[in-house]
Design a protein around this nucleic acid. Sequence first.
DNA 1: ATTTTTGCTTGGCTACATCAACCATCTAGG
DNA 2: CCTAGATGGTTGATGTAGCCAAGCAAAAAT
Lengths: 144, 144
Amino acid sequence: MPPRATKATLTEAHDLSRRLLQVAERARADFADVVAELGLTPVQARAVLWLDQPSAMRALAGHLACDASNVTGLADRLEQLGVVERVPGEDRRVTLLQLTRKGAALRAELADRVAQRSTVTARLTSPERQRLAVLLDKLLDQPG
Amino acid sequence: MPPRATKATLTEAHDLSRRLLQVAERARADFADVVAELGLTPVQARAVLWLDQPSAMRALAGHLACDASNVTGLADRLEQLGVVERVPGEDRRVTLLQLTRKGAALRAELADRVAQRSTVTARLTSPERQRLAVLLDKLLDQPG
DNA sequence: ATTTTTGCTTGGCTACATCAACCATCTAGG
DNA sequence: CCTAGATGGTTGATGTAGCCAAGCAAAAAT
């Protein structure tokens, strides 16, 4: 049977992961609210933010970690919003998604609002933010 | 026009919120993977984890921050999985959701797996975890 | 040149999310 | 009391997003 220390560590891990999930959930909700103000769903917003440069739909699917078939409909809706346009790639199989002028403006506005209305900026002092950044980087180090 | 310091702070905030969103996204994905192994969707898992004690469907909707009508179908599916049962409340309008024995076992297993397979436990040293806990608490302090 | 792989689309199915409308019940005011 | 309003849950319509399997066109590989 495991010694007490292990059990304590497990409880600690449990607590920490619970809190991280809470923060993640709140961040997600905040993000959803902000992007909704600009008429986008969270996934659409992630796509727009990713489209700094034109990108193959395949690559976008990779970034979003979803099935490629999913991106078809996503692109349809973004195209219908006038935010994105499909342009043919050199390889004639691939379709690139590219922000329209409207889309680029939207992307800039989006980035600003997300940064400003983040829970983070409000609740932490500057040194705390720095410490958090370091820790978050460790969490993001390498793929999971 | 804003002085340089403001611009720098904005960029810093931008960066930090971007990283937080990345961590949130990864936490979400991890969570989805873990709970999928137990045959649950993320929302279903959140519900099960919340149902420590019997709870009115309304209250669950509050916790999940979604429309009440949503919980109807959610409860249907959880009931069909044999994880939850509807029991009448004292107020004859309310229906309480209560974990079945199977549901309680599932909940325990769920909590363990989520804690163990969390990115957090793997990548941080103990003091780092403590520092992170402090910062996360500040982020969770008070409603947003 | 034929086969295999790759990129996008389609169609079918499920889960969530919202909103509006509905019924039963509880609560308050007259 | 008894009606009027608020509250809890359900239903139906609609939209987004997720997966899978199947299809087609173009590239790559054999």
